[in-house]
Amino acid sequence: MMGRLLTSLLFLGALGAALVNSYCVEKGKNIALEGKASQSSVYHMNGNALNAIDGNRDGAYRMKSCILTKSDYSAWWRVDLSEPRKIGAVVVANRKDCCWKRLIGAEIRIGNATKNQNPVCGTITEAEPGLVTRTCCAGMVGRYVSIVLPNREEILNLCEVEIYPEGIEKQCV
């Protein structure tokens, strides 16, 4: 009897921990809109860095709301928030019209170094046309938030990056 009780309590504790870890902390406005964006290169003038912080999640490149780099080794996109900020969640909207698999393996990095060697908040492991991915960053602090395709030569494309400070809990997707 005591063994079952202990097992049940351990299970409920593990379940509770899993539920806590499945929530992002986000509140308030998207602070990425206040930043200055840059990227490793620009494939075409319609794919510039500012497109990822224009407030538009439209995943069609022709709508001029996505970024597109050349085929760079460790291609990257980055926003400078002007000062270190505490980050609760980073939301990335993928392209929907083509090439959406390119985002698989992209790392979200947060820190104060201008190079893309900052600590990793998370890695994008799923990609579908137009998929919006929310990554919980648990209060990581940094001036720069980067999306990097590490250690491979590839074009980076994405259509929106939103950055939220800590606040109200919302379930991660």
Rank of each mutant, 00 (worst) to 15 (best):
I110R: 02
M140N: 04
S41A: 14
E154N: 15
C137D: 03
P150E: 02
G105Q: 07
S38Q: 08
C136Q: 04
G55D: 02
A60E: 09
A17P: 03
C159Q: 04
D58Y: 12
Q171N: 12
C159E: 00
V132N: 06
V92E: 06
V79D: 03
N112E: 00
P129D: 05
D97K: 12
I110D: 00
Y43K: 09
M63T: 09
N56V: 04
L15A: 13
P165E: 01
E166G: 15
T69M: 15
N112W: 03
N116F: 10
C121F: 07
L10A: 15
G16T: 12
I110P: 00
I67W: 07
G16C: 10
L15D: 11
E26R: 15
G88V: 05
L50A: 13
E160F: 10
A49S: 13
P84C: 00
R143N: 01
A106T: 14
Y144H: 04
I155Q: 12
L131V: 14
L19F: 12
L149K: 06
G16N: 14
P150S: 04
N56E: 00
L50Y: 14
S71E: 10
I168T: 09
V173N: 12
A75T: 06
N51K: 12
G88P: 04
A75E: 03
G13T: 06
D54C: 14
I155G: 07
L12D: 05
A60N: 11
C136S: 09
V145D: 00
A14W: 05
I168R: 11
L33C: 03
C172Y: 08
L131K: 13
C98R: 04
Y61K: 06
I110H: 05
V173G: 15
D72K: 12
N116C: 08
G167W: 01
C159A: 02
G28Y: 05
L33A: 00
V42Q: 10
N30R: 01
A89G: 06
I53R: 05
A127P: 09
L156F: 00
N48M: 10
I147F: 15
G28R: 03
I155Y: 14
K86Y: 01
V92T: 06
N30H: 01
T114A: 09
A18E: 10
R78Q: 14
L103V: 01
V92M: 03
S38Y: 15
P119A: 00
T133Y: 15
Q39I: 02
N51I: 07
E126P: 08
C99R: 02
C99N: 00
Q117G: 13
K115R: 11
S22Y: 08
I31D: 04
A49H: 04
N151E: 13
L149C: 06
V120A: 05
I155F: 09
D54E: 07
A52L: 05
G47E: 09
A52F: 10
M140C: 06
T69A: 05
